[in-house]
Amino acid sequence: MRFAPNEDQATFLGVLDQMAEGHEAHWRTSPDWSRFDWSAAFDRMLEDNGFLDCAREETLGLVAAAALTHRVARLPVLAECAASSVLRPMVGAELPRPIAVVEGRDDAATRFLTVARSVILIEADGIRTAVLTPNAVAPVDSLFAYPMGRLTPGATDWRAADADPQRVRNAWRAALAAELGGVLKGGLDAVVAYVKDRHQFGRPLGSFQAIQHRLASAAAKIEAAYWLALKAAHSLDPADAMGALGFVQEAATRITNDLHQFMGAMGLTLEHPLHRWTYRARLLRSAMGGAGTHLQGVADTRWRAA
C-alpha cells in the first residue's frame, strides 16, 4: 500500500497544479450573471496537453485520472474532465469531446450536453455511445451550475460500446466521487480564505471555535472522500466505488450548507464563486441514484452477494 504518488504521477499532478493557477482557470464573474463559467479555453488546455489521456499511461492510470478530476472540480471555472479522463478509455471509442454522460433515462436533463460533441449512455444492461449531431440537444434552464441540455428524441444514433457495463459503472462512480470531493474542497478552500480575511468583533471569523470546528469536520470528510475515490478508481471494486460515492454524497449537503453559513450574505451573491461549487454539488448528490442507492449497494455487495 502506498499513498504517495509515483514519480510520473507526482510530475503530472505538479504540472496540473501550475496549469490550475493560470488565468484560464481563474474566477471571474460572468457577464450575464450565469450560474456557471464554462471555460472552453481551460477545457482545451487539458485536452491539448494530454492530461485527459492519463488513464492510458501505465504509470499514471485511472488513479491519476481520478486525482485529475478532483483537481479540476476544485476550480471556479468549468471544464469537462471526468467522462473524458475516466470513461473514454474504457468504452473503447475515440469519442470526440467534451463528453456528456446520460445515466439511465435518455430524456433526462443532463449536464454538459449543450457543449458536448459526444455522449455516453449508462444503462442497467449496457453502455452505448453516440456522436452528437447539431440538432440532437435542446438547452434546458436549470438551477444547477452546469450547462444543461436534453437529448432530442430520436435524434441520436446510439452504438453499443464494447465494454463491461459493471466496470464502467464502477469507474463512473469513482469519477463522480472524485469530482464531488473536489467540488466540496473548492468550496471549502474559498470559505477558509474568506473567514481568515473577514473580521467581526475585532477578530477574524476563522478564529472563532464554532466556525473552526465545523470547517475542520468538513475537512476530515473531504479528505476521506478524496482517498476513498482514489482507492475506488484503483480497484474498480463495486463496494469501493459505491462506498466512495455514497459517503461523499451523504456528506455533501451538510458541508455545503455549513460553507454558506460561514460566508453569510456574501455567499448568496453571484459576485463570489461559492454558488458554483454549491450548485455543482447539488446535482452530483443525486448522480447514479444518490447516497441511498449507493449505501444500500455497499450493504448488498458486502453481505448479500452470495
Binding site: 476513498l228 463496494a239 455514497g246 459517503f247 458486502r302
Partner: peptide, 18 residues
Amino acid sequence: VRMRAGSAAAACDAARIL
C-alpha cells in the same frame, strides 16, 4: 436497515483509509 448498514460500513472504510 441496509442503507444504514452501508453508511456504517462506508464510515469504517473512511476511518480505515485515513
